[in-house]
């Protein structure tokens, strides 16, 4: 892991971002800094604005006020060059791998899509094999279709696709909540391992503060489009300052220690 220097430029930064839909304020002055090589969790329930924030960070939507910066530069959806650099460097992983993989595409084509679209130079086929191996899948899966895989395997494929263009940031939107409990641990471990070995920056958006607690160094709690709490995960979990965070923590179903 790289040594943190406090003044480093964040890879992604939301500065006082607001997004309104009609009269609804989905985001209301949200500021988040994503430091390179670190992991940050954005926690919130439905209506918290976490999905809207995610779309902002991925430049799939523009803020109504404030700005999103990528490596210090203000993101503008019309700036093709900057957008291309962002797409190559920031890759998403979505919640439901059943819907995030095109059912009519072979796995090889799915994983190679960012390489093709971003015109990444080099042998695409070799890169597909390489990233499939890095998520623990056999190269032969490339010739099959998504329906032939279980949920956990599909999420691995989705992660392989995200890794293909060698991004430095993974933005994961509820990456395990659609999976069976027994598979969740494997995917969490995989993400954790990838972040550690490849020095990836991890942005995890989830309603599940438990998953965030396991994967992320810092935690941001969103409620009704505002950041209600932010800090190192350990202190947010151990000593929550905001009333909503405390309510969220109390609601997590816990297995009694047996």
């Amino acid at each position: 892991m790289s040594t943190p220097t406090p003044a480093r430029t964040p890879v992604l930064e939301a500065v006082d971002v607001a997004r309104t839909f009609g009269s609804t304020r989905a985001l209301d002055g949200v500021s988040v800094r994503v430091e390179p090589g670190r992991s940050i969790g954005i926690v919130g329930e439905s209506g918290s604005g976490k999905s809207t924030l995610l779309r902002q960070l991925l430049a799939l939507d523009s803020p109504t006020a404030g700005e999103v910066r990528f490596r210090g530069q203000r993101l503008d959806r019309r700036d093709r060059g900057l957008l291309r650099r962002l797409r190559a460097d920031v890759q998403p992983v979505f919640q439901d791998p059943r819907s995030s993989l095109d059912p009519r595409m072979r796995i090889g084509a799915v994983v190679a899509e960012p390489l093709r679209s971003l015109k990444v130079p080099g042998d695409h086929r070799a890169r597909v094999v390489e990233v499939l191996a890095s998520v623990g899948l056999d190269p032969e899966v490339a010739s099959r279709y998504p329906a032939q895989f279980s949920g956990g395997q599909r999420q691995r494929i989705a992660i392989a696709r995200a890794l293909a263009p060698s991004p430095s940031v993974l933005v994961a939107d509820e990456p395990v909540s659609a999976l069976d409990v027994s598979v969740r641990g494997q995917v969490v471990d995989l993400l954790h391992g990838l972040a550690a070995t490849q020095g990836l920056t991890l942005v995890l958006v989830s309603h599940d503060i438990a998953i965030v607690g396991r994967l992320c160094e810092r935690t941001v709690v969103l409620h009704h489009g505002r950041v209600v709490e932010e800090g190192p995960t350990a202190s947010v979990l151990a000593d929550p300052q905001d009333a909503y965070t405390r309510r969220l923590l109390a609601a997590v179903p816990q297995l009694p220690v047996g």
């Binding site: 943190p4 969740r184 503060i209 438990a210 607690g213 350990a234 979990l237 151990a238 923590l249 297995l255």
Partner: peptide
């Protein structure tokens, strides 16, 4: 392993700064 809250002693994420 994946549900429930980790006790801070078990994971102990390093402080960001």
């Amino acid at each position: 392993a994946v549900t429930g809250l980790p006790t801070p002693t078990r994971t102990a994420p390093e402080d960001a700064r």
